[in-house]
Amino acid sequence: MNSVTSHVESLLKKLLVALSALIVVMVTWQVISRYVLQAPSSVTEEAARFLLIWISLFGAAYAYQTGSHLGLDILVNKLSTKGQAVAGIFSHLCVVGFALNVMVFGGFSLVDLTMTPIQTSAALEIKMGYVYFAVPLSGLIIVLFGINKIKQLASQIWGQ
């Protein structure tokens, strides 16, 4: 389980670095194409927007793994160590529940709707399903990370 998680995490890191580099190149190219080449590119803007969707969703999964999403811990901090672990399990269960129902189930049905019939984007004319596929996929990754976190907290409470 742990090795799967760390494998996914390191893949995710590489993906995010690549996507971020790509988006910078893309928009810089947009400026160059308009001013230097005098031929405005008609697809870079849409491509960059789709990259942003991917960065946002996969980045959200990564930020969940690193515990970087903002939260309010003033109440939970007043609990005992065990109480904090129980509250932590509850919080991760909520995240996993959301990821499963909304991101994985809702996301897959969204992808399904855009694939039958095929919905294409306006400028690039690519399948919107590819863009939206980031929703269920990042949802699955969040579920994986969440279950791992819950297992760790559980073993902390009930011993190894």
Partner: peptide, 26 residues
């Protein structure tokens, strides 16, 4: 249930799909 969760999923991607927000990562 199904349309509800699918709508939230759509907003997660669609809410970010904006030319204006594209400035933020930079």
């Amino acid at each position: 249930f199904a349309p509800a969760v699918t709508t939230v999923a759509q907003r997660l991607a669609g809410g970010v799909n904006s030319f204006v927000l594209l400035a933020i990562p930079f």
